[in-house]
């Protein structure tokens, strides 16, 4: 007896990635650098978020030639992004065998009302969330991994901090809530009662929680891990820095030893005088330029 694509094996791959760093890459060469530096997986895409932000236009699923080239270049898992709600892009990525699909707000949404029915796929999905309600809606749709959204391509950690705190605080609050309040609390955050009850009992999401959107230094990674992230997505922070190899290694080291400031200091020191990516003050972005508000 043998069963593929079960919730257990979909959620299971994310469990194997815990404590690790998943890096955005746009070429097979970058993928090899990421693997060599200790990335646990790579996200294959055509343009990193900082470039999508700068260049504008409609951002779509990447070319299959590019994704396949990256799949051939590394032995670690390869993830790729689809537009929110674009289940046909997801079917295509499943057919070429990517290991994880990111239904991502970084791409231009294809559907402004509905996300993909992720239960219909063998390939697991990761989705972004700004708060617990959003995370639980995605899990109900079948997401096997959640990442707090942050603000992709900003080089600014403030939104990532806001979102991971919102999720962790809401979980903590549920664990002390009287049982008779759980139905109303589920209604208030737009989530299923069954999931809310489960979290009230276990004190954790039923899937792995990473963070994304703004990590650009080793100390950023250590901060997010101490705030309760189980791993880190780094988008523009590595290949937009002045020294990608060193930044990649330093962010991996700081993620592993996030609770040992001496090792995080060594990781910072290893960067020498190389600059992190330039950042953006998110308060100066127009509402239409924010990525995190896409999908809810």
């Amino acid at each position: 007896m043998e069963e593929k694509g079960t919730l257990t094996v979909k959620r299971g791959l994310a469990q194997m990635l815990k404590g690790g760093v998943i890096m955005d890459v746009v070429t097979p060469e970058q993928a090899a650098i990421a693997q060599e530096a200790g990335a646990v997986a790579v996200m294959a895409l055509e343009r990193i978020p900082a470039e999508i932000r700068a260049q504008g236009g409609v951002a779509r699923m990447s070319s299959l030639e590019l994704i396949s080239g990256i799949m051939d270049a590394v032995t670690i898992p390869v993830m790729a992004k689809v537009r929110i709600g674009h289940f046909a892009e997801a079917q295509v990525l499943q057919s070429i065998g990517v290991d994880y699909i990111d239904e991502s707000e970084v791409l231009t949404p294809a559907d402004d009302l509905y996300h993909v029915d992720k239960h219909a796929f063998t390939t697991p999905f990761v989705c972004g969330a700004r708060d617990l309600g959003e995370a639980l809606r995605r899990i109900t749709e079948g997401a096997a991994m959640i990442r707090s959204k942050g603000e992709a391509g900003s080089g600014n950690i403030v939104e990532a901090v806001r979102h991971i705190r919102a999720i962790k605080d809401a979980i903590a609050t549920l664990t002390t809530a009287p049982k008779e309040e759980l139905v109303a609390r589920a209604r208030d955050i737009g989530a299923s009662y069954e999931l809310v009850r489960e979290i009230a009992e276990t004190g954790r999401l039923p899937v792995v929680l990473f963070c994304a959107g703004g990590v650009s230094t080793p100390a950023d990674a250590a901060l997010m891990m101490q705030l309760g992230a189980e791993g880190i997505f780094v988008g523009s922070g590595i290949f937009k820095s002045k020294d990608p190899k060193r930044f990649a290694r330093a962010i991996v080291d700081a993620t592993t030893h996030y609770n040992d400031p001496k090792i995080v200091a060594d990781a910072c020191r290893s960067l020498g005088t190389a600059d992190a990516m330039p950042g953006i003050d998110i308060r100066k972005l127009a509402e239409s330029e924010l990525l995190a508000t896409r999908g809810n």
Binding site: M1, E2, E3, K4, V9, G97, V98, D99
Partner: peptide, 15 residues
Amino acid sequence: RRNAFGRQNESAEVA
């Protein structure tokens, strides 16, 4: 041999 049973789509529960 690494990933010998295949990529993630081939991940499975087996008795």
